[in-house]
Design a protein around this nucleic acid. Structure first.
Lengths: 199, 199
DNA sequence: TGTACATCAGTGAACGCGCGTTCACTGATGTAC
DNA sequence: TGTACATCAGTGAACGCGCGTTCACTGATGTAC
């Protein structure tokens, strides 16, 4: 069954999309290749026509996830109200409750930290992209200070999302998200001193 | 080989200590019971004299970890200089580089979020304990505002530690830790407005 | 235009392996008589 | 005090299972002649 031009690329894209979702939802270690290929409408043996090993899929799926999520966040910021819109969208209950459609960093950072360097580098690119996106919406003019502030804002956002996902009580989980929003916006307001080696 | 009184409790403690370390270092899914029992100087079959299933060990190991780490952090705060000492110890390169001796939340939050409710509850207790510890060192007097601020401070700390652990470049990783320290201390300084639903 | 052959994405059986869990057993010690 | 028995933490073989990976094969289509 020889296939039309572009068919293989399209199949590969389907595998990456399935992997991207399931890794974020279940964690990388918990996802088996057989089930993943079934998600993509294929049998498990065909996997190795596309990737040399699971670790290669992990790395490429992280890059794939970045491609689709960077665009979504930038759109959010442009169409709505700048940084507050980004922070509120990131810390919305909807994002907390649907990790499979959400931030790969919040879902996978701790696990990816234990993976080989190229895989870590793929997730580190997400971090860079998100910090750059936040930095672009800060009023601070000094670039290093802007970057430090943006890093701080993202730390608070990511931390809040993860804590909210562990918390069982819905009210507590909501409160953590709200604290995260307040923290992100408060940090974005601080000028100058934040990034300095403080007292 | 009937054993002296207290022997079983001591063995159980050894299993919990080994589990606590290896879960934080390798992630829960990556740790096999056979290897874990070997760490404790036993063979794998004996596991079920102590725990009904792996999930029970996970839950109890998280509680065990809390017992030992809460004391360590409180000591840090008392012996050294209050909140800044807590934040700096949490975001020290030493903590980043030795997850097996560090915060269970930063190491395991995303993974535990996918576990059954009782396991999540065990980690949620860590979160409560750490927020309480931070709150006790804040100047803010209004209890709800103090709690919201403490939550925000911890979000920034935890987020920074995780981002630093993914980042490959040592300089970048250090800078993330420093941004986290600055963020934690800046948030701790904010009064009143932080916890309010802000614009 | 018709036939023979090459291509190669995808199939599905099979591989060795480690997983969590079960279970019949061991054997040093405490207890009963 | 001496003997028979109960206890039970720990042993190690075995279970079914799903994992990542390999590989001989399929078969529809493109290409060569």
């Amino acid at each position: 069954m020889r296939y039309e031009k572009g068919h293989k690329d399209e199949t590969r894209r389907r595998i990456l999309a399935a992997a991207s979702k399931r890794f974020r939802k279940e964690g990388i270690a918990a996802v088996g290749l057989a089930g993943l290929m079934a998600d993509a409408g294929l049998t498990h043996g065909g996997f190795y026509s596309h990737f040399a090993a699971k670790e290669d899929l992990v790395r490429e799926a992280l890059a794939f996830t970045l491609d689709i999520s960077r665009a979504a966040l930038a759109r959010e910021a442009a169409e709505r109200g700048g940084l507050p819109a980004i922070v509120r969208a990131y810390l919305a209950p909807r994002h907390r409750d649907r990790p499979e459609h959400g931030c790969a960093i919040a879902a996978l950072a701790a696990e990816v930290a234990r993976h080989p360097a190229p895989t870590r580098a793929a997730l580190a690119q997400h971090i860079e992209a998100l910090i750059d996106l936040i930095a672009a919406h800060l009023a601070e003019v000094d670039p290093p200070a802007r970057r430090r502030t943006a890093t701080a804002v993202f730390c608070a956002m990511m931390g809040a999302l993860q804590l909210a996902r562990v918390t069982l009580d819905p009210t507590s989980a909501d409160e953590i998200l709200e604290s995260g929003v307040a923290a992100g916006l408060a940090l974005a307001r601080v000028r100058g001193t934040l990034g300095q080696p403080s007292d």
